[in-house]
Design a protein around this nucleic acid. Sequence first.
DNA 1: TATTGTTATACTCTATAACTATA
DNA 2: TATAGTTATAGAGTATAACAATA
Lengths: 144, 144
Amino acid sequence: MHQRTVAVSGALEELSRLFRRLSPVGGLSLTAAATLANLDRNGPQRITELAAREGVTQPGMTQLATRLEDAGFAERVADPLDGRVVRVRITDAGRAELDHRRTVRTERLADLLGRLSAEDQDALVAALPAITQLSRQLAGAVAV
Amino acid sequence: MHQRTVAVSGALEELSRLFRRLSPVGGLSLTAAATLANLDRNGPQRITELAAREGVTQPGMTQLATRLEDAGFAERVADPLDGRVVRVRITDAGRAELDHRRTVRTERLADLLGRLSAEDQDALVAALPAITQLSRQLAGAVAV
DNA sequence: TATTGTTATACTCTATAACTATA
DNA sequence: TATAGTTATAGAGTATAACAATA
């Protein structure tokens, strides 16, 4: 067990928890926001596909899709080729909500980042590719 | 709004969400684990104090303390000086649980870190002080 | 009267199991 | 019979409001 891994692990858990507390911008849960962002980035997708990507069960995604629909952020579209399939699509209101969330969150974070030393800020920016990579690894690992 | 802030913000949200999915080591929620870690680090504390630190309401912390107590990870201790006050203290089983969580989480993370390039790994380690600082800033900001 | 903590109650989120509709 | 999705139901976690006990 590498010392550095322990350090990274602890730091990330702390950060993860604090970030979660900072995040509740709108009424969207983290999973709801992630799903919406996914729909925005990758276009309409089926319930099963979304469930797998976000790491929730199929019934869980059905319910989440319903919540997003009720909020006006997404809509269900029937698949003309297969009557069993439903595709979920983000709406304009959904995109606006994403924009809003990003704006508020970034404003808050900008304030905090501004209080870090220039060295710390640079180190954080330099670590962005690594963080992105790590996220991808995690997504793959959890998907199993 | 700085471009770099937007990038940091997005990366952190992604990471936060994925880390949460990786984390459920034991049956402990993130808040429960954080509270336990706090009790381990800083010693017995009152309900009100814990609630403020962890960003939950006082009734919320009462309930969390009860869950921790039921699990055998913490215990309530009466304050001899003030009959209204309850102090919560971590037990040996609680410390063992923390150890276990850290071990499992670190093992999982080590596997993922190992798949990153040497450059990415170094960048992540180099960013640790910045991440720690950011966590502190966040903790202060949220406490308000 | 103010403070500390608990109890009562309700809501969100997510899970598993059972079900419906279509292929 | 298999697949896609939904409905039914339950449990964890957390909030607000009302309450009890102590200072």
